[in-house]
Structures are given as structure tokens and as C-alpha cells.
Design a protein around this nucleic acid. Structure first.
Length: 259
DNA sequence: ATGGTAGACCTTCTA
């Protein structure tokens, strides 16, 4: 199984680029983030024409996540449990059917800037809610992948210029500690397990020539349950997509599992 | 020198 995650920064602004990539790469399943549209405006038919089943959890203007799969998606959950007052569309979960079913969780974690505001508190609370929910899912002891835009730079090696991010919510000690807390549940960072290398960035800002200067960060991650990590055979970061015409500021991450 | 771009959408917010 080839599993992909990609923050597309508006699915409708990016549609030709994204469809071209899916046609070439043909992942079996994919999580999309920042689709920036309500469910009714997601270009469902275009993905169905490529052979995908589509599940969307969108909202107007901001956020929004989707899941695409060549096999049917079952037990679909939209929205992260733990706070009925949270109306951001940032969480989608389903079981990818097949001979070896895989539970797939797609997340768009809050950015959290600026630090010291309610936005940062919301980010940390969201991370804590995610941890509590993943504890429940891990109890199933089944193959599971948690993929998406975590908006966390785990380690200094995950930034071209770590000092430039010291005041940023993505690199705060609390954000990094919460990410480590997820790993300590028993989840494996697929990138680090599979031939991790410095410079494997997934995001370059649109501003200040971040891409030509390679001022990148690694914030798009795939965490695997033990039953999935046992079958990990490869990780790719498709950095060439950042050089495309009208690119997203994130590039796709693809994980290969023998499941 | 605290700079710069992109997307949704209505005037500014988010990233």
C-alpha cells in the first residue's frame, strides 16, 4: 500500500496540479489538508474518475480535510472527539478496506501562532485531545497510520535554519514535547525509521524566497502503530512538486507499507 | 532595514 499526505492549500486552486500528481503517482490512499472549501464544493467527481472513493470534512474558507482511497472507506469519523465547541474541520478517520485493513487518521493540526494567544492554547489542547483519542485507537492493536500536517518541527535537523523558528509556535518546546508524547505512545515516525536524512523538508514558505534559498521545514508527518511500522518499506518526499507552476507551499509525503 | 506571497472573499484573516 502506498499512502500519501499532502497539504494542498486550497483543493480548487490546486486542482490541475493535484490531479496530475495523482495520475502519475497513483497512491492507494491519501489524506489532504487545507482544502479550504465546504463539502459541496470539493471536486469529488474528478477524483472518482481516477478511481478513488472520497470522504470530505470541509468548512468555508479555512482548514478542511479529505481522504481518498482506491478501496472503500469504512467506519468514517469526522471531527476530533473531546470538545463539542471545536468547529474547525481538522480531523478525518476511516478504515481502508482490503485483505489487510488499515486504520487511517488524517489531521490538520492548528498552526498556533502567535505564541501566547488563545491560538497557541488551542494548538496545545488539540494535541492533548489527539493524544487521548490515539490512546483509544492504539488499544485495537491494528495497523494504523496518522498522517497529515502536524505544524510541528520535531527537531533542529528538521529546519534549514532552526534559530529562525525559536519564537514560532511550530518549534516551541511545548509543541515539540507534545509531538514526542505522541511517539511515546508507541508510534513510529515513518521518515525517521526509513533512512532519515537532514534536509528532508516538506514545507517552504511562499515569502522571502524560502524555496530558492531552501529555507524549509519538516512538518508533514506519518506516524505508524507497531502493527503498521512492522511493514514499512519506504518513505518519499516529493520535493519537486514545490517547483511546479502555482505550487502548494507543502509537498506530498508518500509511505510504502507491505499491507 | 522586522521586509515578503498566496488563498478565500469582501476588508481582513490565516498561514
Amino acid at each position: 500500500m502506498r499512502l500519501a499526505t499532502w497539504n494542498v492549500n486550497s483543493i480548487n486552486a490546486r486542482l490541475p496540479t493535484v490531479l496530475d500528481w495523482f495520475s502519475r503517482v497513483q497512491p492507494d490512499v491519501a489524506c489532504l489538508q487545507e482544502i479550504k472549501c465546504i463539502d459541496e464544493k470539493f471536486p469529488r467527481e474528478a477524483f472518482e474518475a481516477l478511481g478513488y472513493n472520497v470522504e470530505v470534512h470541509g468548512q468555508k474558507t479555512y482548514n478542511g480535510v479529505a481522504m481518498l482511497s482506491k478501496t472503500p472507506l469504512e467506519d468514517v469519523r469526522k471531527g476530533l472527539p473531546g470538545d463539542d465547541g471545536d468547529d474547525h474541520a481538522r480531523y478525518i478517520e476511516a478504515v481502508v478496506s482490503g485483505p489487510r485493513p488499515v486504520r487511517l487518521v488524517g489531521i490538520y493540526l492548528p498552526n498556533g501562532n502567535p505564541v501566547g494567544t488563545d491560538k497557541f492554547a488551542y494548538k496545545l489542547a488539540w494535541l492533548e485531545r489527539l493524544k487521548r483519542h490515539l490512546i483509544e485507537l492504539l488499544a485495537y492493536e491494528e495497523p494504523m497510520a496518522v498522517a497529515g500536517d502536524y505544524n510541528v518541527i520535531p527537531e533542529p535537523d528538521d529546519a534549514d535554519d532552526p534559530a529562525a523558528w525559536t519564537g514560532d509556535a511550530l518549534f516551541q518546546p511545548q509543541s515539540r514535547a507534545a509531538f514526542r508524547g505522541l511517539k511515546w505512545l508507541g508510534l513510529t515516525d515513518a521518515y525517521m525509521q526509513a533512512d532519515g536524512r537532514p534536509g528532508g523538508y516538506t514545507f517552504w514558505d511562499y515569502q522571502a524566497g524560502a524555496w530558492p534559498r531552501n529555507h524549509g521545514i519538516r512538518i508533514d508527518h506519518v506516524l505508524l502503530s507497531p502493527q503498521a511500522a512492522d511493514h514499512l518499506t519506504g518513505v518519499e518526499i516529493h520535493r519537486d512538486e514545490r517547483a511546479a507552476e502555482k505550487p502548494s507551499d507543502h509537498v506530498p509525503v508518500v509511505v510504502e507499507l507491505t499491507l
